[in-house]
Amino acid sequence: MTTYILPLLLIGALSSCGVYMLLERNLTRMLLGLLLIGNSINLLILTVGGPAGNPPVRGRTSGDQTTTADPLAQAMILTAIVITLGVAAFVLALTYRSYRLTTAEEVADDIEDARVSKLKESDAADEDESDLIATHPDTDEPDELDALPGREGSR
């Protein structure tokens, strides 16, 4: 089996461009990165699927081919196309919702996440479990920590 270098270089270029775009903070570039990675994976499956051959139907021939083509690679590519389409639709919905809420397409830093990451480990180690239990006792009465406070009859 001969391996051609051009498809492999194309797969590598598409994958690297896709990863680069996926690491951006812009949601549209993230979507384009996902699509590029999906296309590079499809090309990879097609490349490793083997050489072309006769159709995988009994009694059919195509030119002077002696071997039968592997239908599994084509079926996997069709499945990957459907999965990529679903992921693209989901990311488009997230992008649209994010744009409608914040009118910005870039993903911003989470303020609470930045605050938690700045906490020192010594501060977290100093907190005692008894302090947490004293401030938030676990009782059966509904309180502000319950999902649906005030609905005693539903328990």
Rank of each mutant, 00 (worst) to 15 (best):
M1E: 12
M1Y: 08
T3F: 13
I5Q: 01
L6K: 03
P7F: 01
P7T: 01
L8E: 04
L9A: 10
L10H: 02
L10E: 01
L10Y: 00
L10V: 09
I11E: 03
A13T: 13
L14I: 07
G18M: 00
E24M: 04
N26G: 00
N26V: 00
T28E: 09
T28D: 12
T28C: 04
R29I: 02
R29V: 01
L31V: 03
L31M: 10
L31E: 07
L32W: 05
G33W: 01
G33H: 01
L36A: 04
I37D: 00
G38E: 06
S40E: 03
S40Y: 03
N42A: 13
L44C: 05
L44M: 10
L46T: 01
G49Q: 02
P51H: 12
P51E: 15
A52F: 09
N54L: 05
P56M: 12
G59V: 06
T61K: 13
S62A: 15
S62W: 14
Q65S: 13
T66R: 09
T67N: 10
T67D: 12
A69I: 11
L72G: 01
A75R: 04
A75W: 03
A75D: 02
A75N: 05
I77R: 03
L78A: 10
T79E: 09
V82R: 01
I83F: 11
T84R: 00
L85S: 07
V87P: 04
V87L: 15
V87T: 04
V87N: 04
A88W: 01
F90M: 12
V91D: 05
L92I: 15
A93T: 06
A93S: 13
T95A: 08
Y96N: 06
Y96Q: 11
R97A: 14
T102R: 14
A104V: 07
E105P: 01
V107K: 10
D109H: 14
D110V: 07
D110S: 14
I111K: 08
E112F: 11
A114H: 05
R115S: 05
S117R: 15
S117K: 13
K118D: 13
L119C: 03
L119I: 05
E121C: 07
D123Y: 11
D123I: 10
D123H: 12
A125T: 12
D126F: 15
E127Y: 14
D128Q: 15
D128F: 13
E129V: 15
E129G: 09
S130G: 05
D131C: 07
I133T: 07
A134N: 11
A134H: 14
T135L: 15
T135V: 14
P137A: 02
T139L: 15
E141F: 08
E141N: 08
P142R: 02
D143C: 06
D143I: 08
D146L: 10
L148P: 00
P149R: 03
G150Q: 08
R151A: 09
R151K: 07
R155C: 07
R155Q: 10
